[in-house]
Design a protein around this nucleic acid. Structure first.
Lengths: 154, 154
DNA sequence: TATTGTTATACTCTATAACTATA
DNA sequence: TATAGTTATAGAGTATAACAATA
């Protein structure tokens, strides 16, 4: 056909790696690891989470985030304690300090991302971001509903 | 600001993971691993490569692809032998069989990717692919020129 | 001495499986 | 018994370092 293109994955995966690599020094300046930042972002929408729900939201194993939560709690960036209604589960929420450090880190990260986006004409940039959100929502929806291994629609 | 958006990385990295996960069963039907497929793709443009150059092209460590090349050679999908002009280096090239299996696998993979792209309006899809190539080329250029850890422009 | 390919080793990350405490 | 959180173990994947052949 006339419309040969590289594989989507072959373009997107290295791009994602480069974006992560570019994030690391920025996060480092805010003394955050990638997982710490992911947790702070994951706590953004809802006021409280159980650890399991939080882990699922950010695509991590529930065992993966325990050490991360330990450190964030120690630094006073989150609160964590048993739910009085069911003392098996922990309720996790952002503190004011946690929200501040998250917002500052995100501002720096997106400023850097915007430098990359400036390579695109303004019109393309708008469409690109819109399309990316559409596709991102599509895959989030897929992985959201019960551990789907077959992934038929993607 | 009025233009709040999720982090680029937070959208692109999970999208890349989902695309890879969707590729795996397709590659499996062609009896290819992800790395085998990456090697076959990497051998596409130029007729011959040294192993080191090939590894760099696909973003792998030179030690990483040795076992992959062993198997591809055993299956007759590539040829590999010392360069008469400098017997330290191996010249690697695709065989006809290798090209065939690569093209068939890629056709299946892109067909599946196109299903995802159909979620976008035709106009957005065109712009999205164009923008993605621009950004992909930008990061490939970055990682191409000597092991750049600081990555200033990204 | 420097470089390519190779092999062996160590390290990081992740997933799996037990353990506790609550229900 | 079932579930949330925790801990410990095992496995996969990757990077690092040493080695042999050639220049």
């Amino acid at each position: 056909m006339s419309n040969a293109r590289p594989d989507l994955a072959a373009m997107i995966v290295p791009l994602g790696r480069a974006l992560m690599a570019a994030e690391l020094p920025v996060l480092d300046r805010h003394e955050l690891s990638m997982w710490s930042y992911a947790v702070l972002l994951g706590l953004g929408a809802e006021p409280v989470y159980t650890q399991a729900a939080l882990a699922k939201t950010i695509g991590a194993d529930k065992t993966r985030i325990i050490g991360v939560l330990d450190e964030l709690q120690r630094r006073g960036l989150i609160t964590r304690g048993p739910d009085p209604a069911d003392r098996r589960v922990n309720l996790v929420s952002l503190t004011e300090a946690g929200r501040n450090i998250r917002d500052r880190a995100q501002r720096d990260i997106q400023a850097r991302e915007n430098q990359l986006l400036e390579r695109l004409p303004a019109g393309d940039r708008r469409v690109f971001l819109r399309a990316l959100r559409t596709l991102s929502d599509a895959v989030a929806e897929q992985s959201g509903r019960h551990g789907n291994e077959t992934n038929p629609a993607l």
